[in-house]
């Protein structure tokens, strides 16, 4: 019984959102506002239960690890974002967070830069690696703006543009695929879970 009611509500909300495809209407606005409200309403108690209780309340009040009071107070300074006069206090937890990012720089350089560079410098042993080589070089040259893109240099950078266009096309194709997949998921729900037409 519960499943039937929940499926009916989900189907109503799905169709309300789809109704925007015809034109903007109150059903769409209602479903959109409800999504935001429910998301927040769900997240707040979950975060309270999963974050505040195990990481703040339990250590301080039950385990008496009073050192936790310092980061707890630091974190609570975020609330001053809403104050015009005391908003500057919220910068301190942000500064602390930024300092942690420094810790990840060596590992990030490895993942984002060094390994990527190494794989781009491997011997050309096939069509794929040749294409990657040509693409990398021509695109890098395209983004070198200290020389006018004219003559032979301009033709080489044009090859870079072609590589980028193919990349954007592939990316757009994947985007279309993703959006269609989302529609498929919703229609599978409407036809299967709600109407029971597919099993």
């Amino acid at each position: 019984m519960f499943e039937t009611i929940s499926n009916f509500i989900a189907a109503f909300l799905t169709l309300s959102i789809f109704s925007f495809l015809y034109k903007d209407n109150p059903f769409y606005k209602f479903a959109e506002a409800l999504l935001v409200g429910v998301s927040m309403g769900y997240a707040i108690p979950l975060v309270y239960e999963s974050v505040f209780i195990p990481y703040v309340y339990t250590p301080i009040f039950l385990s008496h690890k009073f050192i936790i009071i310092i980061p707890a107070l630091l974190g609570s300074l975020y609330i001053f974002r809403f104050s015009k006069n005391l908003g500057w206090l919220s910068r301190y937890p942000i500064v602390f967070g930024m300092s942690i990012i420094g810790m990840s720089i060596p590992m990030s350089i490895n993942s984002y830069v060094l390994v990527q560079m190494r794989s781009a410098m491997l011997p050309i042993d096939g069509i794929n690696s040749a294409l990657i080589f040509i693409g990398t070089v021509t695109i890098l040259l395209y983004f070198f703006f200290s020389k006018a893109h004219k003559g032979i240099y301009g033709k080489v950078t044009n090859v870079g543009i072609w590589f980028m266009m193919i990349g954007f096309g592939a990316s757009f194709g994947y985007t279309v695929m993703a959006r269609v997949s989302l529609l498929i998921g919703r229609i599978q729900f409407l036809l299967g879970d709600w109407l029971g037409l597919v099993k």
Partner: peptide, 16 residues
């Protein structure tokens, strides 16, 4: 998701 495939390909190509 398919949208993110292109972003993740460089890490697949490097073996990461």
């Amino acid at each position: 998701t398919a949208v993110m495939v292109a972003d993740n390909y460089p890490y697949l190509q490097t073996g990461q």
